[in-house]
Design a protein around this nucleic acid. Sequence first.
DNA 1: CTGATACAGAACACACTGTTCGTTACTTTG
DNA 2: CAAAGTAACGAACAGTGTGTTCTGTATCAG
Lengths: 179, 179
Amino acid sequence: MDRRQRKTRGAIFQAFSSLLEMKRYSAITVQDIIDAADVGRSTFYAHFNTKEELLRAMCDDIFEHVFSAEVMREPEHDFSSADSFRDRITHILCHLQEKQHHIKGIFAGECGEIFMKYLREYLWEVFDRRLPEDGEIPRDYRLNHAVSAFAEGIRWWFGGHGEYTPEQISAFFFGTVDC
Amino acid sequence: MDRRQRKTRGAIFQAFSSLLEMKRYSAITVQDIIDAADVGRSTFYAHFNTKEELLRAMCDDIFEHVFSAEVMREPEHDFSSADSFRDRITHILCHLQEKQHHIKGIFAGECGEIFMKYLREYLWEVFDRRLPEDGEIPRDYRLNHAVSAFAEGIRWWFGGHGEYTPEQISAFFFGTVDC
DNA sequence: CTGATACAGAACACACTGTTCGTTACTTTG
DNA sequence: CAAAGTAACGAACAGTGTGTTCTGTATCAG
């Protein structure tokens, strides 16, 4: 990738991210972004067709970092042991914490929902490998339950409870849900 | 309230609701709504200052129906018995099912998030009265956990699992979470 | 050095928003 | 039943944001 492209892309991400901490998503205009990023209008549209696409790209960027090493690079990992599963979960939380600065703005506003949606998709995969078959309750329901509780736990964490460590959040989760 | 007002308001709600089943929220314009509702432009703005306000009004409408009899009219109800709490939850599910037709469109798209946000606010109150004090895990976390799991359970229900009865959903929930 | 590629910036057509106002139709009150 | 009040209509309007196009300039890779 061209150095100019990286630079521009980074500037836009940075601008958008900090704008999100001040304004709600729908109140942010493309003009705001290109002003803050200090790039030309046509340049923005050369990178992203729409504001929404930019948001999606930012989410992908984050999740690539958070999940790549954890899940993608070891697709054969079985999560058979409860301990190893718990480790994975804690790792995910650690990586999210690293990206804290980028994520906070996204979580704050209405686009937090979009972020959550993507997050849930990734988490679904992770939990899908772990959740046991048994029970009268539909597996689908239980999977949804676990993913929802964990994802919303993360949102809770970022939304004013940053004092806890990833290990603690992990402990809270496993103390409340049975996996 | 004037009959004309009611009629207009109803027509707009109806139009918006059915539009939501075909299009995503942000793709729906005020023009679309007034065309579908067959009302004048100025009339729309006499009722709602913005599309967002319309959505909020619709949500309020629904929740007033779902929660009024359950919670508001008996604010002193204590939920002390596990059974009565479970009954309340089931009642809420029943009332949601009644409003199914109006809710489906809202749930579908991105504005489902707004609906969920309101839903969570109401549920928070309900669960707040029930959740015990004890435990090492912060009460706040556990409350968030229960509310999230239940709310997302409802979304799951409306999102293609309508074959289950309110009683079953209730059973699924209480079989997964400990309240 | 050179061709390719990215950026700047201005101009543009287009779409949607939210407001205003004069007119018509309906509803309530006296 | 009439009169006053209120809501709806619909056209016109300015304002704002979108996404595209184009020309010229700067930067990159080989």
